[in-house]
Write a protein that binds this DNA or RNA. Structure first.
Length: 569
RNA sequence: CGGGGCGUAGCGCAGUCCGGAAGCGCAUCUGCUUUGGGAGCAGAGGGUCGUCGGUUCAAAUCCGGCCGCCCCGACCA
């Protein structure tokens, strides 16, 4: 491609809207152009990279027996009502009506459509297993699109679905996808790790995320420094450690009402009563999807991890409003406790199990209760892991310590089980002749996130540095002094030679000054630059520069192809 | 949805507090010079100042509504 003819609009200045490096560079190097919040055009240079990325993923999906198909972006809403996700997705689902007034939606994912295909065409265990996948434009009306393409409202996802006879088959398909994903991300040159994750709205029996560590990631993860334990903070566990009970009270401690005027927070109460915060029991009241209240109890120095409580409750929840608390308990949120509380479901964090001589709110303004023994003075309905783990806590599987970091999710694999197939009647006859629901898995990769991560991991102050697998061109040929006819001729010949020898070449044949071209080349980030100029020719050939290191050397033109072939191995 | 910021030429911004001729840099077009790290000189084109309404002799500027974009939080495969 001759740069003089190419539509690659580079920008000298950093756009004001972009904050993170990948976003800034994707705009400056002419990869994308924003149309609205979370909605981007992929320009020719960027689209080439998207296509290369998709091709890597496609090859790895085909390698595990995946069959590519393509499903509709626009769906009738009825299909989504069958599984309850028409309401489950809520405002995140784009909705519209066709000219006849029929309700449609823009698909945020495709489990329902897969199920519809499966229930029509898959009748027998003999038809299984199947792996179907697509590259599809997903539409999600995110409440807050951000960080360029990292969270968009329209984005290309490689989504795959496995159909199996039983759990054992699902395990196999799931592992095949994990292997395919590892190979694909390795080929893209990403440094990633795999974490246990929450299944969220997807449901199912287990899931893992492929993560790239980045300060700009939206997810928080716990990583062990000594073993390979890694988990999303939504589900991360740590080695249990006891609450120190300095007073070691005997079993006879009795609840005692203590005055705590205007002491509402854990810090205020523990400071006022001169006890460590972990002796307090933190009481949180939430309302579930049906508007029913529930109580969550934690050690005073712990924080609630909301997705753990969601799992424990079996559904979403919101914090109770102050008025609701007042009505239920007759007091303010700062004085709540499980003793003599109104009737509601009580879920307690494992860390306070067996606690003695604890302090809780008295359900009366300006009073707390001390000397509370758990299971004696109140009994939780359910024990669960509810707390957010903290930096430096012990690893749950080895003797190491955990650190907490930010990460970008590039892939997510789910064992769905029969949630969707049951709801939609996607059944097969098993070998025993009995009708059973298909066991499903679903697997997603965000294509633009791969690219953004590649840039986050590989750039410098001058621009992008592409890996050899993702780069849109193999080499950039920079011609200088092209106003001199002889040099122009030799540059053109060199371009023809590179192209015909299989090197996909971007040729900067523009009549611009050298500095301008060098800056543009560094910004675009093609890994290898070849400069041909009167100066290089006087030195005996062309100058070959490695973008990543900045190393340059003069290479004779008749040796160039050999050098490049070595370079691209 | 809560909090904060912003909206003036293709891009980056000043002007807004304190109302009185719409500016600067880059980019673009023309000419000349220049050619190894985003050139110089001379000239030119390009604006419903987000939008609607109000105040005023007069509004980019003051007041109100709305829209859009970015960031933090909430939310989120």
């Amino acid at each position: 491609m001759r740069l003089s003819k190419a539509f690659i609009p580079t920008l000298k200045e950093t756009p004001a809207d972009a904050e993170i490096p990948s976003h800034q560079l994707m705009i400056r190097a002419g990869l994308i152009r924003q149309l609205a919040a979370g909605i981007y055009s992929d320009l020719p240079f960027g689209w080439k990279i998207v296509r290369k990325t998709m091709q890597i993923v496609r090859e790895e999906m085909d390698r595990i027996g995946g069959q590519e198909l393509y499903m509709p972006v626009m769906n009738p809403i009825e299909v989504w009502e069958e599984t309850g996700r028409a309401t489950g997705f809520g405002d995140e689902m784009f909705r519209l009506k066709d000219r006849k007034g029929r309700s449609m939606c823009l698909a945020p994912t495709h489990e329902e459509i897969i199920c519809d295909l499966a229930r029509t065409f898959i009748r027998s265990y003999r038809d299984l297993p199947q792996i179907w996948y697509q590259f599809q434009t997903k539409m999600r009306d995110e409440p807050r699109p951000r960080s360029g393409v990292l969270r968009g409202r329209q984005f290309i996802m490689k989504d795959a679905y496995s159909l199996d006879v039983d759990q054992e088959g699902l395990d196999k398909s799931y592992n095949l996808h994990a292997e395919a994903y590892k190979r694909a991300f390795d080929r893209c040159g990403l440094d990633y790790f795999i974490v246990g994750a929450s299944s969220g709205l997807m449901g199912g029996t287990g899931s893992q995320e492929f993560m790239v560590e980045s300060p700009h990631g939206e997810d928080r993860v716990a990583l062990c420094g000594s073993c390979d334990y890694a988990a999303n903070l939504e589900v991360a566990a740590s080695r249990p450690y006891p609450i120190s009970d300095p007073d070691a009270p005997d079993d006879s401690s009795e609840p005692e009402r203590v005055s705590t005027p205007d002491m509402r927070t854990i810090d205020e109460v523990s400071g006022f009563l001169k006890v460590t915060p972990e002796r307090l029991i933190k009481t949180l009241v939430v309302m579930n999807e049906n508007g029913k209240p529930a109580m969550a109890l934690l050690a005073g120095d712990d924080d609630l991890e909301e997705s753990k409580l969601t799992t424990a409750l079996g559904g979403t929840f919101r914090p109770a409003h102050p008025e609701e608390i007042k009505e239920l308990f007759g007091c303010e949120a700062g004085f709540l406790g499980p003793v003599n509380a109104p009737k509601m479901s009580v879920i307690a964090d494992n860390r306070i199990k067996g606690g003695r001589d604890r302090i809780t709110g008295a359900n009366e303004d300006h009073y707390h209760i001390s000397g509370v023994n758990i299971d004696q003075h109140f009994k939780p309905d359910k024990w669960a892991d509810l707390r957010t783990i903290k930096e430096g806590e012990g690893c749950p599987v080895c003797k190491g310590k955990l650190r907490v970091s930010h990460a970008i999710e590039i892939g997510h694999i789910f064992k769905l089980g029969t949630k969707y197939s049951s709801a939609m009647g996607a059944n097969i006859l098993n070998p025993a002749g009995r009708e059973t629901p298909i066991v499903m898995g679903s697997y997603g990769i965000g294509i633009a996130r791969i690219i953004a991560c590649a840039i986050e991991l590989n750039h410098d102050e001058d621009g992008i540095i592409w890996t050899k697998t993702l780069t849109p061109y193999d080499v950039e040929l920079i011609g200088l002094n092209l106003n001199k006819e002889e040099i122009c001729k030799r540059a053109d010949d060199l371009y023809e030679m590179l192209q015909s020898d299989g090197f996909n070449t971007l040729y900067d044949d523009r009549g611009l000054r050298p500095g301008f071209k060098f800056k543009d080349a560094d910004l675009l980030g093609i890994p290898c630059h070849i400069v041909i100029s009167s100066k290089s020719l006087e030195s005996g050939g062309v100058e070959v520069k490695t973008r990543a290191t900045g190393d340059r050397s003069i290479v004779k033109i008749d040796e160039l192809l050999t050098v490049l072939r070595g370079y691209h191995e």
